[in-house]
Simulated assay, not measured.
Amino acid sequence: MGAIDQIGHVTADLDAAVAMWTSHLGVGPWTVYRNVRLTGDYRGLPADVTIDVALGYRGTVQIELIQPTSDAPSPYRDDDGTLREGVHHLAWVVEDFDTAVALLGAHGLAPVFKAGNSASQVAYFEPAPGVVWELIAGEGMRAMMDAGMAAAAGWDGRDPVTEIDLAA
């Protein structure tokens, strides 16, 4: 799959997580997307999940902070609905989503969560207990990441957060 593109973390408080990553680790600037909706299936059942997401960069790795904003069953919650806080997944951006999903399928892995929206498609795999891999595809996804890395490389510490509300 190549180099890891993203490390995802689940949090109960996105704003506090962004502040911690900014102040303690110098990660920034961040783009925060509110009201992200992912529609697809989770463990074979229909899934309609809403999350708030913050994206920042450390070198060539995208840091994704995720705060679920719905109680829907999803890979962000345990079976009893408890939030799966902490490091959540490793992800790769792929150009050909279906081929990448099929490649993992050929190695005996099936997606436990496959969903998308108008901007992207995602598939989550659990190759072992406690391990989640994600494939991400979308028009311009690699260019968006390159722009984020460039912004992080030249960031002077001012204006650490840009917010985009997808419900607006």
Rank of each mutant, 00 (worst) to 15 (best):
K114N: 13
K114I: 15
A115I: 05
A115M: 10
A115T: 03
A115S: 13
A115Y: 03
G116P: 06
G116T: 09
G116A: 11
G116R: 02
N117C: 10
N117R: 12
S118C: 02
S118Y: 14
A119I: 08
S120E: 11
S120G: 05
S120I: 15
S120T: 07
Q121C: 06
Q121E: 15
Q121H: 15
Q121I: 02
V122L: 15
V122M: 11
V122N: 13
A123F: 01
Y124H: 11
Y124M: 13
F125P: 01
F125E: 06
E126L: 05
E126I: 04
E126K: 12
E126D: 13
P127V: 14
P127G: 06
P127F: 04
P127W: 02
A128W: 02
A128E: 14
A128I: 09
A128L: 05
P129S: 07
P129K: 10
P129E: 12
G130C: 14
G130S: 02
G130K: 06
G130R: 03
V131S: 08
V131Y: 02
V131D: 04
V131I: 14
V132M: 14
V132G: 01
V132H: 12
W133K: 00
W133Y: 12
W133H: 06
E134R: 04
E134G: 01
E134C: 07
L135V: 01
L135A: 05
L135R: 01
L135C: 06
L135I: 01
I136W: 01
I136L: 13
A137C: 06
A137H: 15
A137T: 01
A137F: 01
G138Y: 05
G138L: 10
G138S: 04
G138M: 03
G138W: 07
G138E: 06
E139F: 02
G140S: 03
G140R: 05
M141K: 04
R142P: 07
R142V: 13
A143M: 09
A143P: 04
A143Q: 13
A143C: 03
A143G: 08
M144F: 12
M144H: 11
M144D: 10
M145W: 04
M145S: 11
M145E: 05
M145P: 00
M145K: 10
D146A: 15
D146K: 09
D146M: 12
D146Y: 00
D146R: 11
A147F: 00
A147M: 05
A147L: 08
G148S: 05
G148L: 01
G148P: 05
G148H: 01
G148W: 00
G148F: 00
G148M: 08
A150Y: 00
A150W: 00
A150Q: 08
A151H: 03
A151W: 00
A151T: 02
A151P: 03
A151M: 06
A153R: 14
A153I: 10
A153V: 10
G154N: 14
G154V: 12
G154D: 14
W155F: 04
W155Y: 07
W155V: 00
D156E: 12
D156W: 04
G157Y: 02
G157C: 08
R158G: 12
R158T: 13
R158V: 09
D159G: 08
P160C: 12
P160V: 10
V161D: 03
V161L: 12
V161Y: 12
V161F: 05
T162M: 14
T162L: 14
E163A: 13
I164V: 15
I164C: 03
I164S: 04
I164G: 03
D165V: 11
D165K: 14
L166I: 08
L166R: 13
L166N: 06
